[in-house]
Write a protein that binds this DNA or RNA. Structure first.
Lengths: 192, 192, 192, 192
DNA sequence: AATGAATGAGATTTCATTCAT
DNA sequence: GATGAATGAAATCTCATTCAT
């Protein structure tokens, strides 16, 4: 087989694995089923990924990076804190909606310690970005004088809840607009 | 062994199983490990629970019922919608904090379908309770004229996010007070 | 099954594993074939030994200990250096002859590093014992004034060679008496 | 590629394979690892050797032949039995020291039957050569009237022991001179 | 009620070998 | 000659479940 088909194989594996891990969790997804879904032999998987753990970590990293890039674009290009927060929440929710498999980044197998270094770093980065914009909003007198860090944690918790909700109860997931409005109303000074 | 020690055995199993499923997920927790932690033999487990699935479902049911009772008490005894919502959010968060193992109810192993009927029913019930109180608040002119159902979904999402945050990133979990304040501010009419 | 049959199972496994490792080497022997020979299921093996490596190391330790005890008895009870050396060589060779599986202690799979700590310790102990008795022989004027350590290494090399010969070419293995005589003649003062 | 680079490839493979088999044993060495070390593709290996077994047998044959030639030179050119034996022992030990990979010829993977015909033939040849020279020494009255065949087996055992010692415990290997002296002292008539 | 040895099915992983390019 | 992706078989290991005691 030539290089092009090798690239295709890796792509197939990634897609199949992402799907399987998202659906069944790390332990619930088997290499056999991933291989089958990717249209490759079980042994073939190991040509592309050293083992199950590395395959999963690779996917987690990739998804987190993808999301990070989206976030960066927002915070680099939007000046207004109100709009930035609004866009960040909307982007997060839309992202989770479109990339259901993003749930993989929330995988809780292996005692939640799975890929924790990578995830923790990601969470730290995101927290810094949000906290920063909230603080700006407070300093500019746009937001009420709340503790920026606490607000940040609430926002991140809400987003995390959204992702989980989307997977557990996809028909009854809240609307990004409402969520955003509710949170912003809570943040904004009462007399605009 | 007599009846008292049989009760003790069952209690030990439940405790050990709850811990194991919470820590390692459904597939990650093994019957052997549960038996060991419960101080009972592997075969002994099967005297109390038909199989792994039933053991897990039993625990999920129990936890959901426990939570439901707490919720019912709030909504039966508190008249004021503002206070009811506030108490519900606080209770949920405190509950998750004290019963970390509550995460078991959010388990997504086995293709999400695991115990889904029970969970869905529980979620429906909770949604009804919250939606009802929100609607009352709107009707009484206490809350802004939002869509009660959407607000309900946001609130449930937030709580779900809290539970997940608490497990994934326990050092950076948001404060119940702040969360409550933020959401209420968003709900309340601007000029109280 | 009761305790007695558990002991019997472990004994069966040890016997089968010793045989298999001796015959086919560490990598050449499969857990499946050991299980089959022991009359147990593959999974059953793992009730008694954590994994293949531990099973093999256990056997190596056991055999080395057994041999060590034999050696100790000789050196504790025999005063005359000539007789002690003679008995040690004879014992070693007889031991290897009777316990063909002793070859397991010479296993060279895994880059010879397999169980090396245990083996090295054993070799050091044996070297000390032999060197000591050789030195005594030299000091008493029974042996020629050779370097006791070099002689020790030759003797151990000869024994090692015997074990290997016995496995590779069992029909043409040298006689303990001849070997002993040859070495002693080389050691002894010419005019007795 | 032209003939010269094909030769180079085969040479690389042989070198890499010898190293790998010596270090890890027949089963422990993988074709992939050999290919990698030889700087060739996995498929490429099979252009030069039909399969793993043939590759290994080829190496064993080559090493045994090389050694045989060395032995032949000694016995063809040296008249004096004492010197011949001395040279043979020294040559063997030096050979093993310089060609550590010679250990491959002592490999006991695959149930000892691996390449056994070749090895047995080699051992027979060597035994004949040594026995012959020992007998000459006895007949000439230089050596004590021992059983020539038994002495031969001891000498071969010693050499075999040296090779194994060298690999298992390289820091504590005996000195060729000492070994030789010890054996010759044992062989020689007491009053020269 | 309780034990824990045993099993069989299935999981992850490795590897000699093949073959389309 | 040469590549390296792909495979299928087999290896190691795990685990829910059963059953004789």
């Amino acid at each position: 087989m030539n290089r092009r088909s090798a690239l295709k194989s890796k792509e197939n594996i990634k897609k199949a694995a992402l799907e399987a891990f998202s659906k069944y969790g790390y332990n619930g997804a088997s290499m056999r089923m991933i291989a089958h879904e990717a249209g490759i032999s079980v042994g073939g998987l190991y040509l592309y990924f050293k083992n199950k753990e590395e395959l999963c970590l690779f996917l987690i990293k990739e998804k987190l990076n993808e999301f990070s890039k989206n976030a960066q674009i927002i915070f680099e290009n939007v000046e207004d804190p109100i709009e930035a927060i609004s866009r960040y929440i909307n982007m997060s929710i839309e992202y989770a909606k479109r990339h259901r498999e993003f749930i993989i980044t929330q995988t809780r197998d292996q005692g939640f310690t799975f890929g924790m270094d990578i995830k923790r770093e990601f969470f730290e980065d995101q927290k810094k970005l949000i906290k920063n914009i909230i603080q700006q909003g407070i300093d500019k007198g746009l937001f009420r004088p709340l503790d920026a860090f606490e607000v940040t944690k609430v926002i991140m918790g809400v987003i995390r809840g959204y992702i989980l909700s989307f997977v557990m109860d996809p028909d009854n997931v809240f609307d990004a607009e409402y969520c955003c409005e509710l949170i912003l109303k809570g943040l904004l000074k009462e007399n605009p």
